[in-house]
């Protein structure tokens, strides 16, 4: 464990807490893409299949449980909670995430480290996580109303991934055999997807103006 990875995990945890707080306290999910949240639930469901079979550490198991619980409860809130679901913008959140899931599944079947069910599912979860933010970014472009919490949520998600890249550089330099191209490339693609959001988010923060994404 290194500082980059720990702060990455904490930033990731913060992003889901911010989102849950937003939904739970103001009972609204305006501006949040259900498609992205469903993709994240799928990411954790397919990545943490070995949560009860391969014990890594107490920290690892607890964090996995938290991510599974938060991602599925966010999806539940947005789909079934009688008040929250009313603020879900289903006309605008129309990204057909099946067009993201299928190519990721095909790619995972072709490009993986070992052709076993668990390894293919794990690789699939990496590819899905790389593109999971797309429906949310599309929704932000469309609705233009990026409220603070949604902006912070996306920012924290991007920051967690950027910290993970530093973690991989650190581990590559300190653990000689730590080479994982699949993880690195999908993580890099994911972080690059946030690049333009970061640019506008930091600019709006510097100029102290409301965050506006270009048309």
């Amino acid at each position: 464990m290194n500082i980059f990875r720990l702060s990455g995990d904490m930033t990731h945890l913060m992003s889901v807490i911010v989102l849950l707080l937003k939904i739970h306290t103001i009972k609204s999910c305006a501006g949040i893409s259900l498609k992205t949240q469903e993709l994240y639930a799928l990411v954790f469901a397919t990545r943490y299949l070995d949560i009860f079979t391969d014990f890594v550490s107490v920290y690892n198991t607890i964090m996995k449980l938290i991510f599974l619980a938060t991602s599925f409860s966010i999806v539940w809130y947005m789909r079934h909670h009688k008040i929250v679901r009313r603020s879900y913008d289903k006309e605008q959140d129309t990204f057909r995430h099946l067009f993201l899931i299928l190519p990721c599944l095909i790619l995972a079947l072709v490009v993986n480290e070992k052709f076993t069910f668990k390894e293919v599912m794990w690789t699939f979860s990496l590819y899905v996580e790389a593109v999971a933010i797309l429906p949310q970014l599309v929704l932000l472009q469309r609705t233009k109303n990026i409220d603070n919490l949604t902006g912070q949520y996306v920012f924290l998600l991007g920051a967690y991934r950027a910290l993970y890249i530093l973690n991989w550089i650190y581990r590559y330099l300190t653990e000689k055999h730590f080479v994982h191209w699949i993880t690195w490339i999908s993580g890099l693609v994911q972080t690059l997807l946030y690049a333009d959001f970061f640019y506008y988010y930091i600019n709006s923060w510097k100029n102290n103006v409301r965050l506006q994404l270009p048309a």
Binding site: D9, D54, V56, K64, N167, E175, H180
Partner: peptide, 10 residues
Amino acid sequence: RPKDDAKDEL
């Protein structure tokens, strides 16, 4: 190679 070390990450 020890147990797949990328799997110790979240």
